[in-house]
Design a protein around this nucleic acid. Structure first.
Lengths: 116, 116
DNA sequence: TTCAGACATCGACAAGGGTAAATATTCATC
DNA sequence: GATGAATATTTACCCTTGTCGATGTCTGAA
């Protein structure tokens, strides 16, 4: 078993759900990613960033899209970032988040990949 | 908007994450499914059922696969069932759960579907 | 260097969720 | 019907998490 398994690695390497039972370690890490997406606000944030032109969006735009405080949005973005779903880049005063489409594709493969 | 939108319907009908921003209602329901999978035990349960021959498994087997109490497993199976990910069938004294592969495929399409 | 704006972090609180013990329900068998 | 086995439900506990207000940090401009 890999003691340093990260969410990104777990999602990238493992077989589809339906092929063989997920190991405890892999399940632990994959569930981190799914838990990150398992919140309505974060799911919409992810969708907003991913569907934005260039696959990236400024935090200033994201804040306005919700009826939530700025710290709350910042917190959700951090969760998505730590799960490996968003990349963060600071340009001047502004912060931009970019969707990790490879993570989304790998995660989709784990969930819906055809067995065998 | 659809006031009676269920998780199953939301996952089946909506465009991929990266195509256009998810509506509040859809995000709410899709997040229910993702939240259901966003737990290590439930993820392994889902994988155990889906990878089992015939795509179904008996609760009696599932209980033995974890170091958790029977009510806890039963609770997790209920969450997966209510999210539309598992179907339940009682045969005699035993309960069998079957994986909704269509849900898994639709969910994968929402997450990893290629935009446009 | 001071100021203002953008974003992150901290601290705290209420709501939600995972867990197990106890109990209930359902079905096959005696 | 009474008993026992397989699951589900109820109740309660504790830890996690979503949220906000206050504060901190960093950057560009004056």
């Amino acid at each position: 078993m890999n003691p340093d398994l990260t969410p990104v690695q777990a999602v990238a390497c493992c077989s589809p759900l339906a092929r063989e039972p997920l190991s405890e370690e892999v399940a632990e890490q994959v569930s981190v990613v799914l838990k990150a997406l398992g919140d309505p606000v974060r799911l919409r944030l992810m969708s907003l960033v991913a569907s934005h032109e260039g696959g990236e969006a400024c935090v200033c735009d994201l804040n306005n899209a919700f009826d939530l405080s700025q710290p709350t949005i910042s917190h959700h973005l951090k969760v998505l970032h730590e799960a490996g779903l968003l990349e963060r880049e600071k340009r001047g005063v502004w912060a931009y988040y970019r969707a990790r489409t490879d993570m989304l594709e790998n995660l989709a493969a784990v969930i819906g990949g055809t067995p065998t």
